[in-house]
């Protein structure tokens, strides 16, 4: 990406910002789907129980922390393997 000129980098930045929003929305959808699947097993009611709500909130927090930690390691390994 170093091969790009200033104009190209500006354009790319715009493209990447749109992509980042898309990635965020996708991550949010994945998180909702996975936490719902893991936490909600009972369909005798149409409201979430307290236990289910708590589980979903913890699941989401954990997912985000997991994702951040993977991101940190990813960046480190990427730097290391690029440098080879």
């Amino acid at each position: 990406m170093d091969r790009l000129n200033v104009k190209e980098q500006e354009h790319l930045t715009q493209v990447l910002e749109a992509k980042q929003l898309k990635e965020y929305l996708n991550m949010y959808s994945t998180l909702t789907q996975n936490c719902f699947s893991d936490c909600v097993q009972d369909f005798t009611s149409s409201k979430l129980s307290n236990k289910e709500s708590e589980c979903i909130a913890k699941c989401a927090d954990k997912f985000l922390k997991h994702s951040e930690r993977v991101g940190q390691r990813f960046a480190e390994f990427n730097a290391k393997y690029m440098g080879q």
Partner: peptide, 10 residues
């Protein structure tokens, strides 16, 4: 119904 509630609260 539950999925919407989960989505909303998340």
């Amino acid at each position: 119904s539950k999925y919407f509630e989960a989505n909303q609260s998340l």
